[in-house]
Structure formats: C-alpha cells, structure tokens
Amino acid sequence: MKINQLWQQIPHGAIVTTAWLTAHGVSADQARKLASSGWLQRVGHGAYSRAGDPLSWESVVFALQSSGESESPSLWPGGQTALALQGFAHYLPLGSGTTHLFGVSATRLPGWLKDADWAGRIAFHTDGSLPASLAGSFERVEPSGKTFALTISTPERAILEWVAVTPNELLFSSELVDTFDGLNTLRPRRLQALLEGCRSIRTKRAFLVLARHAGHAWYRRLALDRLDLGRGKRQLCQGGKLDREFQVTVPETFTDAH
C-alpha cells in the first residue's frame, strides 16, 4: 500500500493495532519500517498512530474496538463518560476528571496505557450485572473534535452502569441526582429491557428510587411488576428511612412518603 493511502485510512488522532494494519495491507514489519522512517508513531507494543497526531483516551478506545471481531464490543465508554459524550452530564466536562470504561470480564487494557499520560485517568469496570448482549445497550457516537466514531453505552444503559459502580454513600449525591433530573428523554421500552436483563437487585432498586424521585414521564411507563427486585430489605444509606415500595433504606426525602 502507498503511504499516502494508508495515511488517509488511519483516522486523525486514532491509534491502530498491528491487526488493523494487517487487515489494511500493512505487515508488522512494514509498520516498524514506517515508524522508523517517521511516518508512523509507535504508541506501544503492536500499536501505532500517524506521526504527530494528538492522542487521547478516545484514541485508545478506537484501537481496542476496531481490532475486535465480534459485533458486540468487548470494551466501551459507559456510565458518566457515555452520558457526558451525549450531552447529559453538563457538570462533567469532557477532557477532565476520570474516564469510565466498561468491559467484559476477559478484557484487559494494554500494558502501554499505564505510561500514556495523554490518556488521563481511566477507571476500568468489569461489572457483570449488565450483560453486553442486552438489546438497547449501545450506539455509535463521534466524539467532539474527532474524525472517528466509537461504540458507547446508550443513555439508558449508561445511567444503570453509573448506579451499578457507585458506592452506597454516593448514590444520593448531587452528581447522580442532578443527572437524573436531566434525563427526561430516556426511552421506557429500552429501559424496561435493560432492567429486566440486569442481574443486580441492588442496582435495580437504587435506580428505581432515584428515577421515581426525578418524576419523569418515562418512569410511569415502566412495568415494575415484570422486574425481579428480590426479597427482603436492603440498606442503601446509614440513618435513612425505609422506602416501603422498594424495601430499601434511603435518605428520607427519597422515600415513597414524599
């Protein structure tokens, strides 16, 4: 392949793996030669970018997603990161804070990522309570300022992921509560499918308490009788009150008495 053709095929700011390069007609040996001659920049073992391109955590996700073979991603931006990419979490500015990536249990982040200061702080979650195979889990989004798209969690999945990985003491923080207040466009049918497929009783009960408190129209369209919410009482905060509907101890202002 001619160098200028390869240059056009690698998206600006993306990282590509040797598997990607091989699929595009460039052998591992050719890639090493292109790197030594200054056309490609070696990012880490088996990973390259166009020389001089700015890199970010999105570059990493592109590399890991584009080298996969299955339709369903093994790693994806989720939780508050996915919500921020879609404009829901206005108080979580992109490019700062922590990037939350989710993946199936067998997924491993590349070793070279540890030394990649340009990627920022990354939290990797392998919570298995929301199978990646659930319908309505993912959509394609082109991050602002990028020329490539990533597969990320839909808003409906992302808010469930955020609840799932949040410790009890932060479940009723202003970050989550304010986010719920802004989620007035969630699709109840998609939420229903995700809630029915969610394996965590704690995540489902906490989500429903927060959703009921936000009071959006989509909450009233959920078929709660079709959800497995387990048995017995659960405690989600210290010194709270028992919510009779969902049998969880929560701050008093979040109970069904309000």
Score class of each variant (00 low, 15 high):
L160T: 02
P167M: 08
A119H: 03
R140S: 15
E196S: 13
P167R: 13
L160Y: 06
G87E: 09
R108T: 14
A84W: 05
R108H: 14
L109Y: 06
A149D: 10
T154S: 11
D117W: 02
Q86A: 03
P93T: 08
E175S: 12
T99D: 03
S129M: 03
A116I: 06
F102N: 02
P167W: 08
T166E: 05
S129Q: 12
L92T: 07
E139R: 15
L176K: 10
H100S: 09
L130G: 01
P155E: 07
V104D: 10
G111R: 14
C198L: 14
T147S: 15
P155D: 09
P93M: 11
P110D: 01
G120M: 07
R157W: 08
W118A: 10
S96K: 14
E142G: 04
G128I: 00
L194E: 05
F88D: 11
S144Q: 15
A149G: 07
L171K: 06
G128E: 14
V163L: 10
R157G: 00
D181W: 11
R121Q: 11
L101F: 13
D181L: 09
T203K: 09
I159F: 09
E169I: 05
H90N: 03
G182D: 12
L130K: 07
W118K: 04
P110R: 01
G103R: 04
A116C: 10
P131Y: 01
L109A: 13
E169C: 02
W112L: 04
E139F: 04
I152M: 11
R202D: 10
L101I: 09
A193H: 13
F124A: 06
P155V: 04
V163Y: 02
F138I: 00
N184S: 13
G103V: 04
N184V: 00
V163W: 05
R187K: 12
N184H: 11
T107A: 15
G95L: 11
T99S: 14
F148T: 06
D117S: 15
H90L: 14
R187D: 11
F148Y: 15
T203S: 12
L170A: 13
T147D: 14
V141I: 15
R190H: 10
N168I: 04
L92F: 13
Q192G: 02
S200N: 12
A132M: 05
L85C: 05
G87V: 07
E196W: 05
L191E: 06
R187C: 03
G182W: 07
H125E: 10
E196R: 14
F172V: 04
E161D: 15
A84Q: 02
N184I: 03
N184M: 00
G111E: 13
K146H: 10
R121Y: 00
L160W: 08
L113K: 06
S105Y: 03
R157V: 01
Y91I: 09
T98G: 04
T203Q: 12
S200V: 12
P110V: 02
P155T: 01
V141A: 02
H100M: 07
Q192T: 07
A149I: 00
L171F: 03
